[in-house]
Amino acid sequence: MPQPHWQHLEHGADIGVRGCAASLAEAFAQAALALTALVTAPGGIVEREAVTIECREADPELLLYDWLNALVYAMATRGLLFGRFQVAIEGDRLRATAYGEPVDRARHQPAVEVKGATMTGLEVRRSAQGEWSAQCIVDV
């Protein structure tokens, strides 16, 4: 199975995020990295702060929607960028820690502000080879 990875999806006006991994939780973590990468390169973010995020939802696609939007909210209200995510999903419950630092406009050169994760292209599935992918279009 390939290593956990993320990618951006082409969309006419906006852009999509997709995370892929052997576990659902890691696919969610990778999708979150893709979200950060819309704004700045995740590798350039120093881990100075940790934020705990919890979501509860039985539908895995709505859980992804909630997870990404919880991150958008945390980024917007705390002025943070996150470069690493630890995610655990048990049943309908997601518990995560996002590690990052306050936006430094000179160093991070943030390209765009994410308005929200949308339900367009919202999809969580497992391939025949057992790999999870978690994706949606985000409004920027």
Partner: peptide, 10 residues
């Protein structure tokens, strides 16, 4: 507006 959109869409 972004947050209202996010919440009511859901």
């Amino acid at each position: 507006g972004h947050q209202i959109g996010t919440e009511f869409l859901r």
